[in-house]
Design a protein around this nucleic acid. Structure first.
Length: 103
DNA sequence: CATTTGACTTTGA
DNA sequence: TTCAAAGCCAAAT
């Protein structure tokens, strides 16, 4: 399976622990600098059996999915914190340090 | 086959 | 600098 989704999943699997990646970066890696939305769509239909760290994929604003996607909003935050991702006081991710720029 | 939607980004005021 | 609107890409309906 080498469709768009699989490519996205491959990149997401490559995200190191304690780091996050913006949708646009993944889109760029796929050759679609403006395909960030498509990446998000791929995440929405992402199969759980793929061991996909979707919680490490965030947007440029540093905020995760609208919450209900993971079940509980605080759960994903705790999960990221457990991996070493730094969170700001406003509940957003500190992109300055946690954004994975080694793509 | 055409339209709508969506876990976004960028540009304009 | 912050807030609001438009735009683009791919998949689903």
């Amino acid at each position: 399976m080498d469709n768009f989704f699989e490519l996205v999943y491959k990149i997401v699997e490559t995200i190191p622990e304690g780091k996050v990646v913006s949708y646009v970066q993944i889109a760029r890696a796929l050759g679609k600098p403006r395909g960030a939305r498509a990446v998000g769509y791929a995440m929405r239909v992402a199969p759980s059996n793929r061991n996909l760290p979707c919680h490490r994929v965030v947007n440029q604003k540093g905020s995760l999915a609208p919450s209900h996607v993971f079940g509980d909003e605080q759960m994903q935050r705790l999960r990221l914190e457990s991996e070493g991702v730094l969170f700001l006081l406003n509940g957003f991710i500190d992109m300055k340090q946690s954004q994975w720029k080694d793509l």
